[in-house]
Design a protein around this nucleic acid. Structure first.
Lengths: 146, 146
DNA sequence: ATTTCTGCAAATGCTTTGCATTGCA
DNA sequence: TGCAATGCAAAGCATTTGCAGAAAT
């Protein structure tokens, strides 16, 4: 198990406390936070950190492939330190995002590597996302009450 | 084949020239345009139309289920009048969006109805999106040249 | 006649940018 | 020491909102 410092160094980007902190947040949470959430999480321990830095940091972590970006269309992007292919489900009411484990990485990789898709479209495919949308248990119960 | 007017009336929303025009653009194109593109497309024939109206219109068309919204994370959303489940591929360079036909609606519906996903997450699932990302033929050639 | 929609302009809010300062290598 | 990253404030954009007039039912 590599340390965060080693991971950043391996990607040849400068190691700063802010970058380690942002990545650490993403590693320890399963919440798929957006920039604002990461910022709020860090603020107590890094009172001087700025939103701009968090924006720049997720951008560079994404570019070097340490994290992936999710886009559910709510306005704002979500970040995930798990870069293996896996599906996500998004609650249309509260915005909660949950990983889906019952669709295996292998099954997703099959979809990703489908030659017919590349042939049909002429695209050179580099990644994919499978998103489900609905209501989480809590929001669903709340709605049926009213 | 129903006219656009009939479709809107059926959804119990007021039939206005602007709404018919926006929906007509989405029906006739396969470009998956964003709001700006729809606006530019309409401007010549509807010089008085405003961006705000296009925003409000796609919003209501989406809510009544006549169109679907796609979110590739580029900033801005894309719209599609084909609401049957189908996968899309997005060019990271030029933003082109192409429908994928080789993954059938049936196969996607299978994924959508997977009970394990609902069970695992406790969500009430209402829809899904399968997105591929890569480079289109043109952008891919351009990149290898340089 | 009533309700809803449109178009304008202003406001909002997220994200990016420029730049002086700080900090890593 | 040199180059890159940070933090701040300002700028930039896309989207939303409020509202008066217009249009649909």
């Amino acid at each position: 198990m590599q340390t965060i410092e080693e991971l950043l160094r391996e990607k040849k980007i400068k190691v700063t406390p802010q970058r380690m902190a942002v990545y650490a947040v993403l590693q320890r949470t399963k919440d798929h936070p957006n920039v604002e959430m990461i910022y709020r999480e860090l603020k107590p321990n890094y009172p001087a950190i700025s939103l701009a830095t968090v924006y720049k940091t997720v951008d560079i972590l994404k570019k070097v492939g340490l994290i992936q970006e999710l886009s559910f269309g709510e306005g704002g992007l979500r970040y995930d330190s798990v870069t293996l292919p896996h599906a996500h489900i998004f609650c249309r009411n509260c915005g909660k995002v949950v990983d889906i484990e019952s669709i295996s990485p292998e099954r997703l990789r099959e979809l990703l590597l489908m030659e017919s898709v590349a042939e049909e479209t002429g695209f050179h495919i580099s990644s994919m996302q499978l998103y489900f949308y609905g209501l989480c248990l809590y929001c669903n119960n709340k709605q049926s009450e009213s």
